[in-house]
Design a protein around this nucleic acid. Structure first.
Lengths: 112, 112
DNA sequence: ACCACTACAAAGTAACACTGAGTACCGGTA
DNA sequence: TACCGGTACTCAGTGTTACTTTGTAGTGGT
C-alpha cells in the first residue's frame, strides 16, 4: 500500500470500522471482507484485529463469542452506547477536516 | 486538541502544508499563521517545523534564507517539482479515501 | 493425510503529531 | 538601561497508530 494511504488511515480507520459496525454487528474476519467490498483492498487482517482489541479495551463495543461452522469461534463485535458517541465525534472531526481540505483543494486547482 | 483530530492529521497535515506552499512560498512561522486563518487554530508551531524538516530532507521543497526585520532570518520554502508530484499523489489518495468515507457516512446516516 | 479457507493473536517496526523547553533577534516603553 | 512582547526557528522525548510477519487452530473436501 502507498505510504501516504498508510498514514492517512491512522485516525480514520478506527472510525471506518466503527461505522461498519454501526450498520450491523460483525466479527474480525467479516469486517476485513466488508472493507474489501468497499474498496479498501489492501488492509491487512492483523491491522483489523489489533484495532478491535483497542476499541474493545476502550469499551466502545460489546463482545460475544459465537461458534462457527468453518473455523474457530467468532468474536462478534456490537457497537454500544459509548461506541456510538465515539462514532458521532468521529463524524464531526471528519467533517471539520474534510471541509477545510476540500477548500484547499479548490484553491490549489484554480492555481494551475 | 482532540485526540481524534491529532490522529486524523497524521498523513493529511503534510498534504495541507504542501498545498499551502503550492499557492505561494512561505516560511514556517507564516505557514502556522495561514493554517490558523484556515481554521486549524490548534496546530503547534513545533509540529510545523518538524514537518518542514522532513519535507526538506525528502527534497520536496527548495529552501532560501531571507533576512527578516523582526527576528531571526526566515527559511522560505518553495514547492519544487518533486513536491508538486507528491502533492498530486496526496490529492489522489485523499480523494480515494474521502469518497469511500463519505459513502459510509451516508449509509450510517440512513441507518438512524 | 493433505490442503484451502476460515478465524484469531501477538511481537516488533516505522512514521507521525504533540508537548515543552530553549535560543535568538528586534522594536518599543518605562 | 532594562525589560517585555512579538517574531522565528530548534530539539528531545512521548504516545498512538498501521504494517509486517509469524503462529495457532478448527473445518471441510479430495
Amino acid at each position: 500500500m502507498g505510504k501516504q494511504m498508510t498514514e492517512m488511515l491512522k485516525g480514520t480507520l478506527e472510525g471506518i470500522v466503527l461505522a461498519i459496525l454501526a450498520v450491523q454487528p460483525a466479527y474480525g474476519y467479516d469486517i476485513t471482507a466488508r472493507l474489501r467490498e468497499r474498496g479498501f483492498t489492501d488492509i491487512a487482517e492483523g491491522t483489523i484485529y489489533a484495532l478491535l482489541v483497542r476499541v474493545e479495551q476502550r469499551g466502545l463495543v460489546d463482545v460475544e463469542k459465537v461458534p462457527s461452522e468453518k473455523g474457530p469461534p467468532r468474536k462478534v463485535f456490537t457497537l454500544n452506547e459509548r461506541g456510538r458517541g465515539e462514532l458521532e465525534e468521529f463524524w464531526r472531526t471528519w467533517s471539520f477536516l474534510a471541509e477545510r481540505i476540500e477548500q484547499l483543494h479548490q484553491t490549489d486547482e484554480t492555481e494551475k
